[in-house]
Amino acid sequence: MNIHTYEKVWLVAAMVLIVGFIATITYGAVGPGIAMIDDEGGDINPDEINDDERFAEPGVEHVGGNEYEVAVVAQAWSYTPSQIEVPANSEVTFYVTSRDVTHSFSVVGTNVNTMVIPGQVSEMTVKFDEPGEYGILCNEYCGEYHHTMEGKLNVVPEDEFDMTELSVEADDEVESGNETTITANVENGMQEDLETTVSLEIGDETREEAVTVPGDGSEEVAFTVDSADLGEGDHDWTVTVDDYEESGTLSVVTPDGNESADGGDGDA
């Protein structure tokens, strides 16, 4: 073969370029520790997503420490959940699967981007150091309203994040003279115990009760309310736990007929 010297030099330079590219990519995997989406997520029958332990109730779960798992189900043309909230300084593993066709789960403006293929679970771990708000979009064509498929990922400051949920059970009305109960149910999604205070404001009274909600559990706090203390009429109440509030109105009504005679306690 009759190869010109320059061409030989270029051949060597081209090889150096190629090896340099492969070396850079390898550095990315070893140095910053970038991992590819792979077969770790396993497979799943799309018809059985609703029975799946992870995907039956998609959403954020606390694993422990600063580790979280987020299960997401993609389908034409939405994500469930569509809003995801995780704390900053966390390590979040996403599990994404599709109910119907091929989608993607792409966090805009980041390197978090995976195909979502029916039958497969995409698993990826991401460290969120800083708070931020990101859009999520589907970048694989998935049908005629593909362009409407989007979601939101909020990385909130660590001290603003919790996984507490408050629900309150209370009667709408109570007969004057009877007692009723307002029950606050505090759920704690974090693995650690949650020590907090549940407070009830009703009328001009505020009651507080300290409570320890076990990790990944819930605790009920029942406040007994005596209608006699309130008097007849509508009374607004508010139950507060940390930043969560639930409020309602309790009506104290006059008992029907002769039962009113039963009362008689002065309310002064």
């Binding site: 792409s106 979009l137 589907c138 694989e140 362009h147 989007e150």
Partner: peptide, 19 residues
Amino acid sequence: LFGMPRRTAEPQYQGFDFE
């Protein structure tokens, strides 16, 4: 490079903007 997707009729989203 800022995440604008391909294969999309309307790359305008409700919840966020491209930056």
